[in-house]
Design a binder for these strands. Structure first.
Length: 819
DNA sequence: AGCACGCCGACT
DNA sequence: GTCGGCGTGCTC
């Protein structure tokens, strides 16, 4: 045995670095960088790891373990991915295991769901097996596969892993790596008249004659003809056809005789309504010009920012560009904000490029994820479309990465480590693969705009809408004035009301925007002023009228709405603030005839809620749609000429340095939903402060002015893009310990920073979530400092802090470039 | 992250 | 008398 070789293995743990395992001679023969392996860890655990590297440096400080099994014949993680993961771990101050865990589909991580199978079923030296080994052996003789979990049940004691290890060593069992193969991708069968006889009367009559003695088949065929004539271009599922009075075997026989054709078609609700829509038109002169400019910029720069107003036809430009990249033999990654992934853009691209487009979606189940991973690995796609997680698929030879709606905050991962910014990582991945990155937006983020203006990125503007339709006319409505003059019903000014009436009269659909869900964010007692708060978080509960509940939007806590004030018993409970649900009620009151629907997370629960709503909207089964920011993402409908904003104020008064930037982007994007296809659209924005600079700039579409105002402030107060921010977020259930720990870390860091650059600790606006107190420390890294050195310093000081028991239990999250 | 080990309170 | 709470320490 040659034990002088070792492998560094990446494990899905929140621990620094890789783990060393020794290799046997037979291991050495099959091992490949990027392969999955099953390895024992601790006394109990079996983890799926990925081979990071192979070397001969025997670790002196601990005893190594061996690899249980190789789970793949070939590598399923590419060298570039490993490099990419390391880059992310380094930049976002987290462990490689954190990245691995997030980047890798969990179905490929077997762990305790791992199965073992027997390879020798007549083992001769049974008497040499110990009790536990024998029990597992017997169990396996009865059933082919058992999971590690089940084995742990059979042998009472928790010695399952060691026992299995012994059996593996004796060559009696092996880990079964083929579990995913049990699942097959779900494909729906469709039926249509065979193309050979469709429109060929002679052939058709011949077939029909031959069916003279098969009445059932004849009937079925005639029925299919009728359906196809009535609803041409609408795919018909075999299962649906069978429901209309025939059987599967009849359809099958017809297919064998060449009368009908059974074909596969990816199932998607939206697909079905959209099948016959829009071919990609030839590019307009303007679009061609932009395309050429992009290519010219790419020859000198790695990244180009395409700043094109809403509805300017960016998608067509992307499509042409992608075509050209693919023609050269390269692949394309097309990133979109989460929610848009289900919408029209994807269908247009699929329509244009067909089967070689892979679409990733966070609602995908594990099997679909694995399938997409494997197909990407096998280079079966020319284009892969998806949200930020799509970055982690095993690409080869990327030529272009597109980040559409580049300014969208959903590119930043905020819930799980690593807290990465997808747009930025797209550029990193792209440069690792010598590809180009195209950022697209109607309202670029200030960082991208600044980088472009500094010459770091190419910058191209597209100022006119497709077909030269004018940008919507945006007007402000002064709510103070409306209130004073009694020109207000509930929260709808009469100007807005009359506009809606006008639109409905013309059979147009109306979109209204209110950036808050629920009915009212606060329920307040009229006599004592008490407001119900969440028992787990430091926020007041939001009133949801539909369910008659008070809900916490942070932890999900819900309780029935009390009839009396819990504090003083008064029945006079008032709502304060304004949510989408309340607007919905008000609208129903003002427009009793209108069909009103709501689009927010509450209304979009359930797998196809979003698709269904889009379908209904498209079919004009909705007159007025009221929604939150969800509306701004990929919502593109021709029959909308008017958009209303109920209250812009909450956007402007956000206590955050990005508030103005976000408000401008959001309002511009919402306005962009109006008048996309024919006439100039109209927009009304209601606000109590119509004189606000941001609102004024929105009405004049003055992006440049807005950005230069904001840049001025950012420079003054050392905010991005003039400094990089690193936020340290401390969480603990004990407030005192939390504050002490945060203060201690600040004390340790202080000598290295200017006082303007080390802020806090300070509790965020919601100081407790899910019974954990929170406090933040903000570090501003100035251009003359090395961000990497600062991060190393932070790592070092956190480690030092952790040597003291009292501080160790406080969780510290490092958020680089927070939102 | 998990999990074992170890030390203190409320239960069959 | 034990079950189980979570504080502490370790994992290749």
């Amino acid at each position: 045995m040659n034990t002088s070789y070792f492998a560094e293995i990446i494990l899905p743990l929140n621990l620094e670095g890789t783990f060393t395992y020794h290799l046997t001679d037979s291991d050495l023969q099959q091992i490949k960088i990027g392969q999955r392996v099953a390895v024992p860890f601790g006394t109990q655990k079996l983890y799926t790891g990925v081979i990071h590297s192979i070397h001969q440096n025997k670790p002196e400080l601990y005893k190594t373990k061996g690899i249980y099994a190789f789970l793949d014949d070939e590598a399923i993680v590419t060298p570039t991915q490993i490099k990419f993961w390391e880059w992310i771990a380094n930049y976002y101050v987290c462990s490689l295991g954190d990245v691995f865990r997030n980047a890798f589909p969990s179905a490929l991580k077997l762990e305790s769901q791992t199965f073992v199978r027997l390879i020798i079923d007549n083992y001769e030296k049974i008497e040499e097996l110990n009790d536990n080994e024998f029990l597992v052996y017997e169990a396996l003789k009865l059933r082919q596969l058992i999971s590690v979990e089940e084995a742990a049940l059979i042998i009472d004691d928790k010695s399952a892993i060691p026992t299995l290890k012994l059996l593996i060593d004796k060559g009696i069992i092996q880990l079964d790596e083929k579990i995913q193969e049990k699942y097959t991708p779900k494909i729906e069968n469709y039926v249509r008249i065979h193309p050979n006889i469709k429109g060929n009367d002679a052939a058709f009559i011949q077939i029909l004659d031959s069916l003279n003695r098969a009445q059932k088949q004849r009937e079925a065929l005639l029925q299919l003809i009728t359906i196809e004539t009535q609803k041409p271009n609408e795919p018909l599922k075999v299962s649906e056809f069978v429901k209309m009075g025939t059987t599967n075997s009849i359809v099958k026989t017809l297919a064998e005789k060449g009368a009908v054709e059974i074909y596969q078609h990816q199932t998607s609700r939206v697909d079905e309504t959209e099948t016959e829509k829009e071919e990609i038109h030839q590019l307009t002169l303007k679009q061609t010009e932009v395309l050429e400019k992009i290519k010219a910029e790419f020859s000198a720069k790695q990244t180009v920012l395409l700043h094109g107003v809403t509805s300017s036809g960016k998608t067509e430009i992307y499509i042409k560009l992608m075509e050209q990249v693919i023609k050269k033999g390269n692949k394309v990654l097309y990133l979109l904000p989460e929610i848009s992934v289900t919408t029209q853009i994807v269908h247009r691209i699929k329509k244009h490029f067909g089967e070689r487009v892979g679409v990733y979606h966070s609602k995908f189940n594990q099997n679909e994820r694995v399938e997409l991973w494997k197909k990407t690995l096998n280079v079966e796609f020319d284009i892969v479309i998806g949200p930020r997680t799509t970055l982690f698929l095993p690409f080869t030879s990327l030529g272009l990465v597109i980040v559409d709606e580049e300014h969208e905050s959903s590119y930043k991962q905020i819930d799980t480590k690593p807290f990465f910014q997808g747009r930025d990582m797209a550029m990193v991945l792209s440069s690792m693969m010598n590809a180009k990155t195209l950022l697209g937006s109607a309202t670029p983020s200030i960082e991208s705009y600044y980088n472009a203006r500094q010459g770091k990125y190419g910058y191209i503007e597209l100022n006119e809408r497709f077909g030269n339709i004018k940008l919507p006319d945006i007007k402000l409505v002064d709510l103070k004035k409306a209130q004073k003059e009694k020109e207000l019903t509930h929260d709808i000014s009469h100007i807005l009301r009359d506009e809606i009436i006008e639109q409905l009269k013309e059979k147009k659909q109306v979109i209204l925007f209110q950036n808050r869900r629920g009915y009212a964010p606060i329920l307040e007692c009229n006599s004592c002023g008490n407001t119900p708060e969440c028992p787990n978080c430091d926020v007041s509960l939001t009133y949801h009228k539909f369910s008659n509940q008070l809900k916490c939007h942070y932890c999900g806590y819900a309780q029935a709405k009390p009839n009396r004030c819990v504090s003083c018993g008064s029945v006079e409970l008032n709502t304060k603030g304004l949510g989408t649900e309340q607007i919905e009620h008000q609208l129903q009151d003002i427009f009793p005839e209108a069909r009103i629907r709501r689009m927010d997370v509450d209304a979009m629960r359930g797998k196809f809620a979003y698709e269904k709503l889009i379908e209904d909207f498209e079919n004009h089964e909705v007159d007025i749609l009221i929604g939150t920011q969800m509306l701004t993402k990929g919502f593109d409908f021709g029959n909308v000429n008017f958009v209303g904003v109920i209250r812009a104020d909450s956007l402007l008064n956000f206590p955050d340095f990005r508030a103005h930037e976000k408000a401008f982007q959001l309002l511009t994007q919402v306005s962009g939903r109006a008048g996309r296809r024919e006439d100039q659209g109209k927009v009304l924005i209601q606000s109590y402060q119509p004189e606000h600079l941001v609102l004024q700039n929105v009405t004049t579409y003055n992006y440049q002015k807005t950005m230069s105002d904001i840049l001025y402030e950012r420079k003054e107060f050392y905010y991005p893009p003039f400094a990089r921010i690193i936020k340290l977020r401390f969480k603990h259930k004990n407030k005192e310990r939390l504050d002490k720990t945060a203060e201690q870390l600040v004390k340790l860091l202080k000598p290295n920073f200017d006082s303007r650059c080390l802020l806090g600790p300070e509790a965020p606006s919601v100081g407790r979530i899910n019974n954990l107190y929170i406090t933040d420390v903000m570090i501003k890294v100035l251009p003359n400092q090395s961000p990497m050195k600062v991060k190393q310093l932070i790592r070092k000081e956190i480690d030092r802090l952790c040597t003291i028991a009292a501080y160790r239990s406080v969780r510290i999250d490092v958020d680089v470039d927070p939102m």
